[in-house]
Design a protein around this nucleic acid. Structure first.
Lengths: 229, 229
DNA sequence: TGAGTAATTTTGTGATATCATATTCAGTGT
DNA sequence: ACACTGAATATGATATCACAAAATTACTCA
């Protein structure tokens, strides 16, 4: 079925007892997060329903949730599309991402344990391996896991959903950046993050997170958007 | 009908050509934002449907969207409730609110015009009038309008939805605070915000926003949560 | 009287049916 | 060829229907 390729992303494994709507939501969200759906692409609910062999009802619920997160756009014609990126919006999103993640990282420090740092280091090593093979999707996922692991150690944490919402908005465009440049950023700022964690140094951690985000996407993304404009 | 009182909030006026789902979403969101629904309260979709004279379908969509924003909680039994507040979560939400709003305010400064400042001052005056009459709901709405007006002058702004999501999570609890204390915070930090805007002083603006949030809800909220715990 | 269990009711979920609107396509006339 | 118009089609939105799971109630037995 041609429509299925709209989500050219592997089926995700899924606990059996969840709802269909949740499955669709998770699958679409994942596809958008790794940039599997091109910005500007138009989707139809019935198309998605046919592709996933479901009725429109759970599709609509999932799509509505994603539009609330600004991962999808409901156009005035009631059609939906993946939002296009502009330079202004891009810079706002990156700036917001830095502010949020520096904040979340700082509030995680009191709860950091050696075990967590070691787990994060292990994730970073895995990223190096995946990087060598050029698996961009896996790289994106691992990078997010790395960051999320840090923010999640704070037991009262409320930032992660907000941060993920920003990731979601940057996702489709980030893929374009990776594909166009056909290379990933050179320096690995994750080592810097890990060092700051070992030292429990809030200042250094903030700097490291900021650099990681800036170098990871900001510079190259701005290049591309400027040459278009 | 008794169920309708679940949302003891006036009907909001609503453009005629929007969808039912959007109407339900807006109405529920508003009710939660001003704290019209008590934390811990259980809602049923069919109950809401009956109260609003609608089928469960648009209700489900609206509720799903709100649960994505963490304004409602879907329990493992598939029931839904307004989340309860804890001290830890409260402090995280307030800290996040400060970080976000200081960020958004700073990024608005380059776009500030005298006209906007005057409009904000007018809103603040109206708040003083409403305050004298003890209309807490109207006060909450006006306060949000005041803040939103500032952040919205940035044309590439992406913060407002995120900030509103935090407001939404604080809403039900904030109402409890106002009711229990039966008074509103004394000093009006909005004047301080407006002065900083006239001066185009980013530093002072950040301080003013921080103080406004802290004094407005943080102190009294913490008091209440601590005496419970 | 109280605890456990079966029957009833309520509820959430997803598929289907229906309707209004938007889009696409074919045909007409210039 | 090209713009315009009307028919046909596709789409989104909501209500209704069917089903399964959960909650509630009623009932039984100790």
């Amino acid at each position: 079925m041609a429509k299925a390729d709209t989500l050219n992303v592997p089926e995700i494994d899924f606990g059996a007892d969840r709802t269909t709507q949740e499955y669709v939501y998770a699958r679409l969200r994942n596809a958008i997060m790794v940039g599997a759906i091109e910005p500007g692409a138009h989707l139809t609910m019935r198309g998605l329903a046919e592709a996933l062999n479901l009725s429109p009802t759970p599709i609509r619920e999932a799509v509505r949730r994603l539009s609330t997160e600004h991962a999808l756009q409901i156009l005035p014609n009631r059609r939906m599309a993946v939002p296009l990126m502009t330079l202004g919006r891009f810079e706002e999103l990156v700036a917001l991402r830095i502010t949020l993640e520096v904040h979340a990282a700082a509030r995680s420090v009191p709860y950091i344990s050696d075990i967590i740092i070691e787990k994060m280091a292990a994730l970073d090593d895995e990223m190096d391996r995946v990087l060598a093979q050029g698996h961009y999707d896996a790289l994106t996922i691992l990078n997010q896991d790395f960051h999320r692991m840090l923010y999640a150690v704070n037991p009262h944490q409320v930032c992660i959903p907000v941060i993920e919402s920003v990731w979601l908005q940057l996702g489709p465009f980030q893929r374009q950046v990776l594909v166009r440049l056909n290379q990933v950023p050179g320096v690995d700022h994750h080592k810097q993050i890990i060092n700051a964690l070992w030292a429990r140094d809030v200042e250094a951690l903030g700097e490291a997170v900021k650099n990681d985000i800036r170098e990871g996407i900001s510079r190259s993304g701005r290049q591309i958007l400027e040459q278009v404009a």
